[in-house]
Protein backbone atom coordinates (compact mmCIF):
# COMPACT_ATOMS: atom_id res chain seq x y z
CA UNK A 1 0.00 0.00 0.00
CA UNK A 2 2.14 2.88 1.23
CA UNK A 3 5.76 3.23 0.30
CA UNK A 4 8.40 5.57 1.65
CA UNK A 5 10.99 6.89 -0.76
CA UNK A 6 14.54 8.13 -0.43
CA UNK A 7 14.73 7.62 3.31
CA UNK A 8 15.25 3.89 3.74
CA UNK A 9 18.59 2.13 3.72
CA UNK A 10 17.55 0.20 0.66
CA UNK A 11 16.71 3.35 -1.32
CA UNK A 12 19.99 4.95 -0.38
CA UNK A 13 22.02 1.79 -0.79
CA UNK A 14 23.64 2.07 2.62
CA UNK A 15 23.24 0.74 6.15
CA UNK A 16 25.30 3.43 7.73
CA UNK A 17 23.28 5.62 10.03
CA UNK A 18 24.55 9.03 11.17
CA UNK A 19 22.94 12.15 12.55
CA UNK A 20 21.73 15.09 10.49
CA UNK A 21 24.46 17.33 11.90
CA UNK A 22 27.11 14.69 11.19
CA UNK A 23 25.78 14.53 7.66
CA UNK A 24 26.16 18.30 7.24
CA UNK A 25 29.69 18.12 8.63
CA UNK A 26 30.58 15.22 6.38
CA UNK A 27 29.38 17.14 3.31
CA UNK A 28 31.50 20.14 4.22
CA UNK A 29 34.53 17.97 4.96
CA UNK A 30 34.27 16.08 1.68
CA UNK A 31 33.72 19.27 -0.31
CA UNK A 32 36.76 20.86 1.34
CA UNK A 33 38.90 17.80 0.64
CA UNK A 34 37.87 17.81 -2.99
CA UNK A 35 38.17 21.54 -3.66
CA UNK A 36 40.63 24.07 -2.22
CA UNK A 37 38.25 26.88 -3.01
CA UNK A 38 35.76 25.70 -0.41
CA UNK A 39 36.10 27.22 3.03
CA UNK A 40 33.83 28.00 5.91
CA UNK A 41 33.33 31.17 7.90
CA UNK A 42 31.09 31.94 10.83
CA UNK A 43 30.87 32.70 14.51
CA UNK A 44 32.35 30.13 16.92
CA UNK A 45 32.76 27.48 14.24
CA UNK A 46 36.42 26.84 15.15
CA UNK A 47 37.55 25.26 18.42
CA UNK A 48 34.07 25.74 19.85
CA UNK A 49 32.68 23.55 17.06
CA UNK A 50 29.66 25.71 16.20
CA UNK A 51 26.71 26.83 18.31
CA UNK A 52 24.88 23.62 17.35
CA UNK A 53 28.04 21.55 17.12
CA UNK A 54 27.79 21.22 13.37
CA UNK A 55 31.33 22.20 12.40
CA UNK A 56 32.62 19.95 15.21
CA UNK A 57 36.15 18.74 14.48
CA UNK A 58 36.47 20.39 11.08
CA UNK A 59 38.72 23.04 12.63
CA UNK A 60 41.18 20.38 13.72
CA UNK A 61 41.10 18.74 10.32
CA UNK A 62 41.37 21.82 8.14
CA UNK A 63 42.82 24.54 10.35
CA UNK A 64 41.94 28.11 11.19
CA UNK A 65 42.41 29.43 7.63
CA UNK A 66 39.64 27.36 6.12
CA UNK A 67 37.42 26.95 9.17
CA UNK A 68 37.46 30.63 9.84
CA UNK A 69 36.13 32.00 13.12
CA UNK A 70 34.72 35.49 12.71
CA UNK A 71 33.74 38.34 14.97
CA UNK A 72 30.03 38.82 15.57
CA UNK A 73 29.51 40.71 12.32
CA UNK A 74 26.86 38.98 10.23
CA UNK A 75 26.72 41.69 7.58
CA UNK A 76 30.49 41.74 7.35
CA UNK A 77 30.95 38.01 7.06
CA UNK A 78 28.20 37.47 4.50
CA UNK A 79 29.67 40.39 2.54
CA UNK A 80 33.11 38.84 2.81
CA UNK A 81 31.68 35.61 1.45
CA UNK A 82 30.10 37.50 -1.46
CA UNK A 83 33.44 39.17 -2.25
CA UNK A 84 35.39 35.93 -1.98
CA UNK A 85 32.85 34.15 -4.18
CA UNK A 86 33.06 36.91 -6.79
CA UNK A 87 36.77 36.27 -7.23
CA UNK A 88 36.45 32.50 -7.42
CA UNK A 89 36.22 31.03 -3.93
CA UNK A 90 33.38 28.77 -2.72
CA UNK A 91 32.58 30.08 0.75
CA UNK A 92 30.15 28.44 3.14
CA UNK A 93 28.85 30.89 5.73
CA UNK A 94 27.31 29.62 8.92
CA UNK A 95 24.91 32.06 10.56
CA UNK A 96 24.41 30.97 14.15
CA UNK A 97 20.61 31.32 14.07
CA UNK A 98 18.70 32.09 10.88
CA UNK A 99 17.08 34.98 12.75
CA UNK A 100 20.44 36.77 12.46
CA UNK A 101 20.29 36.76 8.69
CA UNK A 102 18.36 39.95 9.36
CA UNK A 103 21.67 41.61 10.20
CA UNK A 104 23.04 40.47 6.86
CA UNK A 105 20.02 41.06 4.65
CA UNK A 106 21.66 43.73 2.51
CA UNK A 107 24.41 41.37 1.45
CA UNK A 108 22.01 38.48 0.92
CA UNK A 109 19.18 40.26 -0.85
CA UNK A 110 20.71 43.35 -2.47
CA UNK A 111 24.13 41.93 -3.28
CA UNK A 112 24.39 38.12 -3.50
CA UNK A 113 20.98 37.55 -5.07
CA UNK A 114 21.28 40.28 -7.69
CA UNK A 115 24.90 40.58 -8.76
CA UNK A 116 24.76 37.98 -11.53
CA UNK A 117 21.64 39.52 -12.99
CA UNK A 118 22.57 43.19 -12.53
CA UNK A 119 25.88 42.60 -14.27
CA UNK A 120 24.15 40.96 -17.20
CA UNK A 121 25.69 37.62 -16.25
CA UNK A 122 29.29 38.87 -16.15
CA UNK A 123 30.01 37.58 -12.63
CA UNK A 124 28.40 35.13 -10.27
CA UNK A 125 28.27 34.49 -6.54
CA UNK A 126 28.79 30.80 -5.80
CA UNK A 127 28.25 30.84 -2.06
CA UNK A 128 26.31 28.87 0.50
CA UNK A 129 24.69 30.33 3.57
CA UNK A 130 23.68 27.72 6.15
CA UNK A 131 21.59 28.59 9.17
CA UNK A 132 19.47 26.75 11.71
CA UNK A 133 15.82 27.71 11.72
CA UNK A 134 12.64 26.89 13.57
CA UNK A 135 11.12 26.57 17.00
CA UNK A 136 11.03 23.83 19.59
CA UNK A 137 14.03 24.72 21.72
CA UNK A 138 12.52 27.27 24.11
CA UNK A 139 14.68 30.02 22.65
CA UNK A 140 11.70 32.35 22.10
CA UNK A 141 10.84 34.83 19.39
CA UNK A 142 14.25 36.06 18.22
CA UNK A 143 15.82 32.62 17.94
CA UNK A 144 13.00 30.49 16.53
CA UNK A 145 11.69 31.95 13.30
CA UNK A 146 11.07 30.24 9.99
CA UNK A 147 11.90 32.88 7.39
CA UNK A 148 12.24 30.61 4.35
CA UNK A 149 9.50 32.38 2.41
CA UNK A 150 11.41 35.66 2.58
CA UNK A 151 14.38 34.15 0.80
CA UNK A 152 12.22 32.24 -1.65
CA UNK A 153 10.60 35.55 -2.61
CA UNK A 154 13.90 36.98 -3.82
CA UNK A 155 14.80 36.13 -7.42
CA UNK A 156 18.40 34.95 -7.58
CA UNK A 157 18.47 32.96 -4.35
CA UNK A 158 18.07 29.21 -4.14
CA UNK A 159 16.43 27.99 -0.95
CA UNK A 160 16.95 24.52 0.49
CA UNK A 161 15.31 22.88 3.51
CA UNK A 162 16.70 19.39 4.08
CA UNK A 163 14.41 17.12 6.08
CA UNK A 164 16.56 14.00 6.45
CA UNK A 165 20.19 13.26 7.25
CA UNK A 166 20.76 11.97 3.72
CA UNK A 167 19.32 15.15 2.23
CA UNK A 168 21.27 17.31 4.66
CA UNK A 169 24.40 15.91 3.08
CA UNK A 170 23.30 15.45 -0.51
CA UNK A 171 21.58 18.80 -0.90
CA UNK A 172 24.45 20.65 0.77
CA UNK A 173 26.93 19.09 -1.64
CA UNK A 174 24.78 20.30 -4.53
CA UNK A 175 24.50 23.73 -2.93
CA UNK A 176 28.29 23.98 -2.70
CA UNK A 177 28.62 22.98 -6.37
CA UNK A 178 25.99 25.48 -7.47
CA UNK A 179 27.23 28.69 -9.13
CA UNK A 180 24.54 30.73 -7.32
CA UNK A 181 23.94 31.88 -3.76
CA UNK A 182 22.13 29.07 -1.96
CA UNK A 183 20.42 29.47 1.42
CA UNK A 184 20.32 26.18 3.32
CA UNK A 185 17.95 26.23 6.28
CA UNK A 186 18.47 23.39 8.72
CA UNK A 187 15.79 22.76 11.31
CA UNK A 188 17.32 22.72 14.79
CA UNK A 189 15.18 19.81 15.92
CA UNK A 190 16.60 17.72 13.09
CA UNK A 191 20.27 18.05 14.01
CA UNK A 192 20.09 15.09 16.40
CA UNK A 193 17.84 12.92 14.29
CA UNK A 194 19.57 10.20 12.32
CA UNK A 195 19.13 8.19 9.18
CA UNK A 196 21.02 6.26 6.56
CA UNK A 197 23.53 8.40 4.67
CA UNK A 198 25.84 7.22 1.90
CA UNK A 199 29.51 7.51 2.81
CA UNK A 200 30.45 8.76 -0.64
CA UNK A 201 29.80 12.34 -1.71
CA UNK A 202 26.45 11.58 -3.33
CA UNK A 203 24.66 14.69 -4.56
CA UNK A 204 20.93 15.24 -4.24
CA UNK A 205 20.00 17.65 -7.03
CA UNK A 206 18.39 20.98 -6.16
CA UNK A 207 14.87 21.18 -7.56
CA UNK A 208 13.69 17.62 -7.10
CA UNK A 209 10.80 16.93 -4.73
CA UNK A 210 10.84 13.67 -2.75
CA UNK A 211 7.74 11.53 -2.39
CA UNK A 212 8.23 10.22 1.12
CA UNK A 213 5.14 8.09 1.13
CA UNK A 214 2.42 7.21 -1.33
CA UNK A 215 -1.23 6.98 -0.20
CA UNK A 216 -4.72 6.93 -1.65
CA UNK A 217 -6.80 9.50 0.16
CA UNK A 218 -4.84 12.64 0.79
CA UNK A 219 -1.59 14.40 -0.15
CA UNK A 220 0.33 16.11 2.63
CA UNK A 221 3.07 18.53 1.53
CA UNK A 222 5.62 19.90 3.98
CA UNK A 223 9.31 20.72 4.37
CA UNK A 224 11.91 20.51 7.13
CA UNK A 225 10.68 19.18 10.44
CA UNK A 226 7.13 18.97 9.08
CA UNK A 227 8.15 16.01 6.94
CA UNK A 228 8.81 13.70 9.88
CA UNK A 229 5.71 15.03 11.64
CA UNK A 230 3.63 14.30 8.57
CA UNK A 231 5.09 10.80 8.33
CA UNK A 232 4.25 10.18 11.99
CA UNK A 233 0.75 11.51 11.42
CA UNK A 234 0.48 9.19 8.44
CA UNK A 235 1.02 6.18 10.71
CA UNK A 236 -1.71 7.35 13.05
CA UNK A 237 -4.06 8.02 10.16
CA UNK A 238 -3.33 4.61 8.64
CA UNK A 239 -4.66 3.00 11.81
CA UNK A 240 -7.88 4.89 11.13
CA UNK A 241 -8.01 3.72 7.55
CA UNK A 242 -6.83 6.99 6.04
CA UNK A 243 -4.00 6.45 3.63
CA UNK A 244 -1.90 9.53 2.87
CA UNK A 245 0.95 10.63 0.64
CA UNK A 246 3.73 12.78 2.03
CA UNK A 247 5.67 14.99 -0.37
CA UNK A 248 8.75 16.97 0.58
CA UNK A 249 9.66 19.67 -1.98
CA UNK A 250 13.17 19.86 -0.41
CA UNK A 251 14.02 23.04 -2.30
CA UNK A 252 11.64 26.01 -2.30
CA UNK A 253 13.65 27.53 -5.15
CA UNK A 254 13.93 25.90 -7.60
CA UNK A 255 10.54 24.34 -6.91
CA UNK A 256 9.65 20.99 -8.46
CA UNK A 257 5.86 21.05 -8.23
CA UNK A 258 5.10 18.33 -10.79
CA UNK A 259 4.99 15.50 -8.19
CA UNK A 260 2.58 17.60 -6.11
CA UNK A 261 0.19 18.17 -9.01
CA UNK A 262 0.42 14.52 -9.95
CA UNK A 263 -0.26 13.24 -6.45
CA UNK A 264 -3.00 15.72 -5.59
CA UNK A 265 -4.71 14.93 -8.90
CA UNK A 266 -4.77 11.31 -7.80
CA UNK A 267 -5.87 11.74 -4.16
CA UNK A 268 -8.12 14.75 -4.74
CA UNK A 269 -7.09 16.30 -1.44
CA UNK A 270 -4.19 18.56 -0.42
CA UNK A 271 -3.06 19.39 3.10
CA UNK A 272 -0.18 21.89 3.02
CA UNK A 273 1.78 22.10 6.26
CA UNK A 274 4.40 24.59 7.42
CA UNK A 275 5.84 25.80 10.70
CA UNK A 276 6.06 29.40 9.49
CA UNK A 277 3.09 31.74 9.98
CA UNK A 278 0.43 31.07 7.35
CA UNK A 279 -0.02 34.63 6.14
CA UNK A 280 1.78 34.98 2.81
CA UNK A 281 3.76 31.81 3.41
CA UNK A 282 5.34 29.19 1.15
CA UNK A 283 2.28 26.95 1.25
CA UNK A 284 0.22 29.88 -0.06
CA UNK A 285 2.38 29.60 -3.19
CA UNK A 286 1.69 25.85 -3.39
CA UNK A 287 -2.01 26.48 -2.94
CA UNK A 288 -1.98 29.07 -5.70
CA UNK A 289 -0.18 26.68 -8.03
CA UNK A 290 -2.88 24.09 -7.45
CA UNK A 291 -5.61 26.68 -7.97
CA UNK A 292 -4.00 27.95 -11.18
CA UNK A 293 -3.64 24.53 -12.77
CA UNK A 294 -5.97 21.77 -13.96
CA UNK A 295 -5.18 20.07 -10.64
CA UNK A 296 -8.00 22.18 -9.21
CA UNK A 297 -10.58 20.20 -11.24
CA UNK A 298 -9.48 17.02 -9.49
CA UNK A 299 -10.03 18.34 -5.97
CA UNK A 300 -12.71 16.65 -3.87
CA UNK A 301 -12.37 19.30 -1.16
CA UNK A 302 -10.84 22.78 -0.91
CA UNK A 303 -7.09 22.91 -0.35
CA UNK A 304 -6.32 23.09 3.34
CA UNK A 305 -3.34 24.84 4.91
CA UNK A 306 -2.03 24.10 8.38
CA UNK A 307 0.53 26.68 9.51
CA UNK A 308 2.17 28.27 12.48
CA UNK A 309 0.16 31.00 14.17
CA UNK A 310 0.51 34.51 12.82
CA UNK A 311 2.39 35.40 15.98
CA UNK A 312 5.99 35.41 17.21
CA UNK A 313 7.21 32.14 18.77
CA UNK A 314 6.63 32.28 22.55
CA UNK A 315 8.92 30.93 25.27
CA UNK A 316 6.85 28.68 27.58
CA UNK A 317 6.94 25.10 26.26
CA UNK A 318 3.16 24.66 26.15
CA UNK A 319 2.80 27.99 24.34
CA UNK A 320 5.57 27.19 21.91
CA UNK A 321 4.08 23.80 21.06
CA UNK A 322 0.66 25.35 20.61
CA UNK A 323 2.07 27.89 18.13
CA UNK A 324 3.20 25.50 15.42
CA UNK A 325 1.65 22.38 13.85
CA UNK A 326 2.27 19.18 15.82
CA UNK A 327 1.59 15.58 14.80
CA UNK A 328 -1.87 15.65 16.42
CA UNK A 329 -2.77 18.82 14.50
CA UNK A 330 -1.81 17.22 11.23
CA UNK A 331 -3.87 14.12 12.08
CA UNK A 332 -6.88 16.24 12.94
CA UNK A 333 -6.61 18.42 9.83
CA UNK A 334 -6.25 15.37 7.65
CA UNK A 335 -9.33 13.73 9.17
CA UNK A 336 -11.39 16.90 8.76
CA UNK A 337 -10.32 17.21 5.16
CA UNK A 338 -11.24 13.62 4.36
CA UNK A 339 -14.55 13.90 6.21
CA UNK A 340 -15.47 17.14 4.39
CA UNK A 341 -15.50 15.39 1.05
Amino acid sequence: MSSTQTSTSADLGTDRVITYSEAVREAIGQAMEADDRVFMLGEDIGVYGGAFGVSGDLYHRFGAERIRDTPISELGIVGAAVGAALVGMRPIVEIQFSDFTNQAMDQIVNQAAKIHYMLGGAMSVPMVLRAPLGSGTGAAAQHSQSLEAWFAHVPGLKVVMPATAADAKGLLLSAIDDPNPVIVLEHKLLYRTSGPVPEEAVRVPLGQSAVRRRGEHLTIVGTGVMVSRALEAAEVLAADGIDVSVIDPRTLTPLDDAPIHEDVSRTGRALLVQEAPGHVGFTAELSARIAESPTIYRLLAPVRRLSGLDAPIPYAPQLETASVPQVADIVESAKTLVKES
Binding site: G83, A84, V87, Q111
Partner: peptide
Protein backbone atom coordinates in the same frame (compact mmCIF):
# COMPACT_ATOMS: atom_id res chain seq x y z
CA UNK B 1 27.43 47.76 0.04
CA UNK B 2 30.82 47.23 -1.57
CA UNK B 3 32.92 47.54 1.57
CA UNK B 4 32.39 44.01 2.97
CA UNK B 5 32.68 42.67 -0.58
CA UNK B 6 36.10 44.32 -0.91
CA UNK B 7 37.21 42.67 2.33
CA UNK B 8 36.01 39.31 1.00
CA UNK B 9 37.86 39.63 -2.30
CA UNK B 10 40.99 40.58 -0.35
CA UNK B 11 40.46 37.54 1.87
CA UNK B 12 40.37 35.33 -1.22
CA UNK B 13 43.59 36.89 -2.57
CA UNK B 14 45.29 36.36 0.76
CA UNK B 15 44.09 32.76 1.17
Amino acid sequence: GGIPIAAGAALAFKM
